[in-house]
């Protein structure tokens, strides 16, 4: 059969010339697909080094705080203090559960909280179990170790703390914007992430000028976009907070993956 007169019919045997052509063409296509898969996999954006120990329940003990976001003040083994944010499962903050447990008159409350750890770069969060996650009682730790930084200007990206600390991997960038928006809308503490001069990644929780949480509507437009945040910063028990005076669009976003 001449090349011009070869004719394929699916329910009949394949002509020899077409069979020979396909025996070369298809492996070449498969090879190209596998090369593409290797490139797409190897050069994918790294997912970050956060961990989410779902299924491995732990208990943390310390002072329970309800504001600006639910958290525990916990004494480390070396005697220093750390703050462990408390969140619910899914994209929900724990405010509704924790606020009734903490008096507003300043009385300190000791408690134990059960949940699953989420951690990145030495910062920890506890995703509370669904049933009876908090038990009041126990030993109160030392007073707050507060350090004022003063006015700062931070260029970075506003993310939700839960995803960035290890749930989403990566928990920043445009692809993650809607997820971060849902999380912050649901009460997960918003943070600004940035690169420190030494090249390490830093995170600070953003709150309003009065130290209370920002309204969702005021922060929503800035989530997962390159921004510059200006405000007064302080470090409480090792956890950084920024009382926001102003947020503006930045010219360039420094992504966490580029730092990794």
């Amino acid at each position: 059969m001449s090349a011009s007169n070869e004719f394929y019919v699916g329910y009949l045997p394949t002509p020899a010339r077409q069979r020979h052509f396909l025996s070369v063409f298809l492996p070449v296509c498969a090879f190209l697909a596998f090369v593409l898969a290797a490139l797409a996999g190897a050069f994918s954006r790294p997912t970050g080094d956060g961990v989410w120990e779902t299924g491995h329940e732990v208990t943390v003990e310390g002072e329970l705080l309800a504001t600006p976001f639910p958290m525990m003040r916990v004494a480390r083994a070396d005697g220093t203090m750390e703050r462990v944010l408390l969140v619910e499962m899914g994209k929900h903050g724990a405010d509704a559960r924790i606020a009734p447990l903490v008096p507003t008159d300043g009385t300190r409350v000791a408690a134990r909280a059960r949940g699953f750890l989420i951690a990145r770069g030495g910062q920890r969060m506890l995703e509370l179990v669904e049933e009876d996650p908090v038990t009041l009682g126990g030993t109160l730790p030392a007073r707050v170790d507060a350090r004022s930084i003063g006015t700062v200007e931070i260029a970075g990206e506003i993310v939700d703390s839960k995803c960035w600390l290890g749930v989403m991997k990566p928990g920043d960038g445009k692809a993650h914007r809607d997820c971060a928006t849902l999380c912050i809308r649901g009460g997960i503490p918003p943070s600004i992430i940035c690169e420190a001069p030494d090249g390490t990644e830093r995170r600070a929780i953003v709150v309003g000028r009065d130290g209370a949480p920002l309204s969702f509507d005021s922060i929503a437009p800035w989530i997962a976009a390159p921004v510059v945040v200006r405000g007064n910063a302080e470090v409480l028990d090792g956890m950084a907070f920024v009382r926001v005076e102003e947020i503006a669009r930045a010219d360039a976003l420094v992504r966490s993956s580029e730092r990794e």
Binding site: F34, A37, A38, A42, T47, M168
Partner: peptide
């Protein structure tokens, strides 16, 4: 199947995976 396998192997080799 080959595409998915190669993608996973390449990604797992390059960085910590989710």
């Amino acid at each position: 199947a080959g595409y998915l396998a190669v993608f996973f192997i390449a990604a797992a080799t390059a960085f910590e995976t989710s």
